[in-house]
Amino acid sequence: MVLVFKTNIDTVSKVKRISAKLNKLFPKSKWNFDLEDCDNILRFESDIDIVKEVMILMKITGFECEAL
């Protein structure tokens, strides 16, 4: 399934701050940020529903995240 989130991650340096945590917590998922999109989209490809976990991680790390 593809999960899509609106975020406030708008720079490569912010992506670098969260990328290790995303890889560690979701090792079987593929993800990417679209910094060109006005909503700074985070897309996940995952076999399971991880919406709540992604939103909690983003909040704990100090970023905004909304499931679309």
Rank of each mutant, 00 (worst) to 15 (best):
V4T: 15
L25A: 06
A67P: 09
C65V: 10
K59S: 12
L25K: 13
N23R: 13
S29M: 03
M1V: 10
E45W: 04
F63A: 09
V54W: 01
D47Q: 08
D37A: 11
I48L: 06
V12A: 14
K24Y: 14
C38E: 14
W31E: 08
I18C: 04
F63K: 10
K59Y: 02
I18V: 15
D10H: 14
E36S: 14
D49I: 06
M1I: 05
C65G: 10
V12D: 14
L57V: 10
M58V: 06
A20Q: 13
K52I: 05
I48A: 11
N32W: 08
D34C: 01
L42W: 00
V54D: 02
N8A: 09
L3A: 03
S29I: 08
V51D: 00
R43F: 05
N23Y: 08
V54T: 04
I18H: 01
F63V: 07
L42N: 00
V15S: 02
V15D: 03
I60S: 12
R43M: 13
A67S: 15
D49M: 02
V15M: 10
A67M: 10
N23M: 07
L57G: 05
K52G: 08
S29W: 09
V2G: 00
T11Y: 10
S46W: 00
M1S: 12
A67L: 12
D39T: 07
C65Q: 11
R17W: 01
F33E: 00
K14G: 02
I9T: 10
E45D: 07
I50S: 03
K16F: 08
G62Y: 05
G62K: 07
D49V: 08
D34A: 04
F44A: 01
F33I: 05
C65W: 05
F44N: 03
D49C: 03
L42C: 01
M58H: 05
D37I: 02
C65A: 15
K28Y: 10
K16Q: 12
E36D: 13
F44E: 04
V54F: 02
S29Y: 07
V4F: 00
N23S: 11
A67Q: 12
K24L: 13
E66V: 10
V12M: 14
K16V: 14
P27W: 02
D47N: 11
T61M: 15
K28T: 15
P27T: 03
T7Q: 04
I50F: 02
I56V: 15
K30S: 07
V54E: 04
K52S: 13
D39Q: 12
C38H: 09
K30R: 08
R43N: 11
C65M: 12
K6S: 08
I56F: 06
K59V: 03
E66M: 08
V12H: 14
K28A: 13
F33K: 00
F44W: 01
K14Q: 14
G62Q: 08
G62W: 07
N40M: 06
D37T: 01
R43D: 04
M1T: 09
N40K: 09
D37Q: 02
M1Y: 09
N8E: 07
E53M: 06
F26C: 04
E53Y: 03
M55G: 00
V4L: 10
L3K: 07
T7V: 05
K21Y: 14
L22D: 01
V54C: 03
L57T: 09
D47H: 04
